[in-house]
Design a protein around this nucleic acid. Structure first.
Lengths: 248, 248
DNA sequence: CGAGTATTTGACGAAGCTCAATACCTGTGG
DNA sequence: CCACAGGTATTGAGCTTCGTCAAATACTCG
């Protein structure tokens, strides 16, 4: 099957979690990609203030949404894994009110907005699935606020690790409770809105409690139940339908 | 014109900010409402964990999205003003991962999900405008995270007041820099993720700086420029196209 | 090996929380 | 009309979490 090796495969696989796709729909998604480019880690995929004429699908690598405050500090508001349509919202929402940075080398696919418009007008099934993705993003954002607002630093870290684990599991990137994280402690501190010093201390706290191991860029969860408890983690907002770890 | 007094008027007015509506589209929106009910202040409009068969349009009054943490504290993640489609996302995102409470007595209109589905399949123009509303919500959520993460308490309060002022202005509910707020300091503290004691202190800080007055349930902004500066407020994320106060 | 980056540690300071008490405000019943 | 109850706002004092500054240690890659 040609579609098994299609460029849009990471997105198709993700969408199929939420509804069946006809092979015609798969072809349409695949045909929607105008080009693929590589972005090196550390550089921006989309810049605040710009009005792109295409949306960006993350094929491989990791990226983050962020804003820079007046004092120059960076607040990350979301992390993205392969299969995420990182700026689908900018189809209707221009100019961008935040930037997206590649955390590692990323392969990204561009989908022109006029093609999205055509899909939207003629393919209500696909349109619904795409809308759903942005709604799930919205839920993730609400949850991000909850973490920032009502969890202590070590709880928030535990929560974030739970979230990343499930999202990595969904795309088949976990192995025996461990997964690859592309985050330095500085970037992590920009997710959690902590100083990097305090971030280091809460990482060590979870290590000391023997809940996680974190070596190099690999996190291993050694006590899932306790991690969930510490982070007050409820996976509903991720809308992941199949998981080995959680019953949904 | 009958449509001038239609039930869906607050929504229609809002949508017209983002694109023209044909009179047929207006009629469709109006006809989408299956019933109108009144919810008394303090009670929930939608409850976490439920899977409503309709979405709720706020016709009058104020409401808030919130989650309750394990310790029982409430984190508010968004405020809603008349014209907001408070749970449009639950058309595709069930069950609800948060609740919505009426802050004051609210008149709300119910729009059945099967009607939304029909609109979505047959009215791409309307569908796009509705999608856009959920995308704007998403941007508001990102901004809420930024406020929680990277602003000091008094800055965050200033930011929230700026936001509410512009949203109230958009629906014609401001007068000489003042507007009605349905928030007690306890509720405000649940927006800002502060204790009510500290919330009181930052309210007094802004009063002391003569940037705002806040008497009973009326806020008067006496120094807009300084309030914007303190809150590091950039209104782009609200996607308000006309305002007397800000140039967009 | 050396330079640059990431992590770790300590000491001290600031922002915000908790507890507790007091004042205020509004509606209710006697 | 007054007393009272229940919520709301305000204030003070001591404490916790987290931030800042500064330095030291590890790790990575050429």
């Amino acid at each position: 099957m040609a579609s098994a090796t299609s460029t849009a495969r990471p997105l198709i696989t993700k969408l199929q979690n939420y509804g069946p796709l006809s092979s015609e729909e798969e072809q349409i998604l695949d045909g929607a990609i105008s080009s693929v480019r590589e972005v090196e880690g550390g550089s921006d995929i989309v810049l605040e203030g710009t009005s792109p004429e295409h949306s960006t699908l993350l094929l491989s690598g990791f990226s983050a949404r962020y804003n820079i405050s007046m004092e120059g500090t960076r607040q990350i508001t979301a992390l993205h894994v392969p299969g995420d349509f990182v700026d689908l919202h900018c189809y209707l929402l221009k100019p961008m009110d935040h930037s997206i940075i590649a955390l590692t080398t990323c392969r990204v696919a561009m989908v022109p907005h006029d093609v999205l418009g055509h899909i939207f007008d003629t393919q209500p099934g696909l349109a619904r699935l795409l809308w759903l993705q942005t709604l799930i993003d919205g839920g993730a954002h609400r949850n991000w606020s909850i973490g920032l607002g009502s969890l202590l630093a070590h709880q928030h870290l535990a929560h974030l690790i739970c979230e990343m684990y499930l999202r990595m599991e969904q795309i088949g990137r976990t192995e025996n409770g461990s997964f690859h994280v592309p985050l330095t402690q500085v970037l992590l501190s920009q997710c959690l809105a902590l100083s990097s010093v305090h971030t280091n201390r809460v990482v060590q706290m979870l290590r000391g409690e023997k809940v996680i191991r974190w070596e190099r860029d690999v996190i291993t969860i050694t006590d899932w139940d306790r991690l969930v408890e510490i982070g007050e983690f409820d996976p509903l907002y991720l809308r992941i339908l199949r998981s080995k770890v959680v019953a949904v």
